[in-house]
Deep mutational scan, measured.
Amino acid sequence: NQASVVANTLIPINTALTLVMMRSEVVTPVGIPAEDIPRLVSMTVNRAVPLGTTLMPDMVKGYA
């Protein structure tokens, strides 16, 4: 099973992502692959992402 990116904290809308905000976890449904974490750093989220939420491609500006 592939690990996905999961919010390690509440990420407010329009926040630039940092490494400490994200962790990898095997979850269903599958979200952004964990190997993309380095690429996500400094990208911003377009909605509030609660703790434990899987990051989906449409949640990160410029990812999809």
Rank of each mutant, 00 (worst) to 15 (best):
P38S: 11
D58M: 07
V30Y: 14
E25H: 07
L17C: 03
R23K: 14
L19V: 14
G31T: 01
P57H: 11
A3Y: 09
M43A: 11
E25R: 04
D36C: 05
N46C: 07
P29W: 03
T53A: 12
P33G: 06
P33H: 07
V60Y: 00
V6D: 01
L19R: 11
P29C: 06
V26S: 13
P38H: 10
T28L: 06
T44L: 13
S42I: 03
V26K: 04
T54Q: 03
P50C: 07
M22S: 00
Y63L: 07
I32D: 01
M22Q: 01
E35D: 11
I37N: 00
L51I: 14
S24R: 05
N46D: 12
D36S: 13
E25I: 04
T18K: 06
R47S: 13
L40V: 09
M59E: 03
L17A: 00
N1M: 15
T44H: 13
T15G: 05
I13C: 10
K61M: 13
V20C: 06
P33I: 14
E25L: 04
N14E: 09
D58G: 08
V49C: 07
G52Y: 05
L51V: 12
P33M: 10
K61T: 15
A64N: 15
T44C: 10
T44R: 08
N14S: 09
T54V: 14
K61W: 13
V30F: 09
A16K: 10
V5F: 02
P33R: 11
T28A: 11
A34V: 10
R23D: 04
G62W: 06
L19S: 08
T54S: 04
P29M: 04
P29Q: 05
R47C: 09
P50R: 07
M56G: 05
E35L: 09
G52W: 05
V5M: 02
S42G: 14
I32F: 02
P57Q: 08
N1T: 15
R23H: 06
T18A: 11
V41M: 08
M59P: 02
V6T: 05
L40P: 00
T53C: 09
K61F: 09
I37G: 04
I32E: 01
A7E: 00
P38L: 12
